[in-house]
Write a protein that binds this DNA or RNA. Sequence first.
DNA 1: ACACAGTTTAAACAAGTGTTTAAACTAACG
DNA 2: CGTTAGTTTAAACACTTGTTTAAACTGTGT
Lengths: 206, 206
Amino acid sequence: MSTKNKILDAAEKLFADKGFNGTSLREITSLAEVNLAAVNYHFGSKKELIKAVMSRYMDELSPRLESALVNICQSTAQPSLTEVFSAFVEPLLALNDFQEHGTTNFLQLLGRGYTDSQGFLRWFLTTSYPNVIDNFVEAVHKAYPELSAEDMFWRLHFTMGTIVFTMSSSDALMDIARNDFSNDIDIGGVIRQVIPYVAAGVAAPV
Amino acid sequence: MSTKNKILDAAEKLFADKGFNGTSLREITSLAEVNLAAVNYHFGSKKELIKAVMSRYMDELSPRLESALVNICQSTAQPSLTEVFSAFVEPLLALNDFQEHGTTNFLQLLGRGYTDSQGFLRWFLTTSYPNVIDNFVEAVHKAYPELSAEDMFWRLHFTMGTIVFTMSSSDALMDIARNDFSNDIDIGGVIRQVIPYVAAGVAAPV
DNA sequence: ACACAGTTTAAACAAGTGTTTAAACTAACG
DNA sequence: CGTTAGTTTAAACACTTGTTTAAACTGTGT
């Protein structure tokens, strides 16, 4: 395994766990078992490393997501909101083949990106991967045409919040669920729990 | 104004804005125009200062919330979920009388507390103010008795996520909304937008 | 006027941060 | 072999972090 990938893997795990601000380059390089200076040699700066970690996932996820959403839009004239949201499940779970704990890590990172580092990651993602958002908006509009652009805007952000926040604390939540309900649950189970919730939220009457 | 309160006010604003990890004591004391050592003299440590900032709000909010929820439970045999969630509006907006931008600041701080500082604040809040959660769970159960304890658990956390995430980026979202829809909106407007969403989400069929 | 508790202050502390430097190493090619 | 480009390394850089120290200041009660 190359030094570059060792750094990316270690950074991903630590960023997801403790946030971008909360993780030092020394923690990353010592988990990756490489020299401290390797980060700046291969990536230039910590900020660029953060972008690289996110890009690795987005480049994997974005085309799958795009085709899944386009597929929904073309196959049925008016898909249900549940169908639209379910389009996310397979591409997201596919990240587990790409990397160990890929789904959880990516969603946690996404959550971190929205709150840590005063939102520079949000800017980076929305400008680098606008198709994902556009396709999603189009699919939701087909499923629920009466929804005004403004209401759509708010509800999509509410949905984003639900997903991202849930996933960024999903480890803790799954532990509690296992304890209180002695019901073993994995990340796929959480996703299946959240879909009816967000679908109903977006579908709420105005 | 006492030094203690000057510190609390400055810390609150900066914590809400840049997170707990992202704010240094030097930033706080220089905004508060007090000496650096004053924080450790009056609060003991940064961690205790964070608790103090949150407690100031929770002590104000918690009784109002409790009576509003108890009121709902006693007045009607089976309240609607919208009524339950609406019980939060007045107590939350009342924080604006208590402090300038009190509502926004508090909700942003709550969001920070869940992601920053590996969740020690979540522990602090749930153990220090359990009545709020208990009352809320009871009210939701009255409104939607068919919901199993496990589904309730997940949906309440989804709701928490929606609220907290939305509010922690509400400034940015309100700016976008103003630009794209030339529709002036304040924090109360955001709250009124989010209630139908979470009510429908919690009410979703299982 | 004195003493004393409460508070404020400047300075220093040790530890941790991201980044840079220049020397050492590694492998491939002429 | 010797050269060269790519990579790794230990050490240092300048700076920021939370916390502590001991001296100075404040007002109140005797």
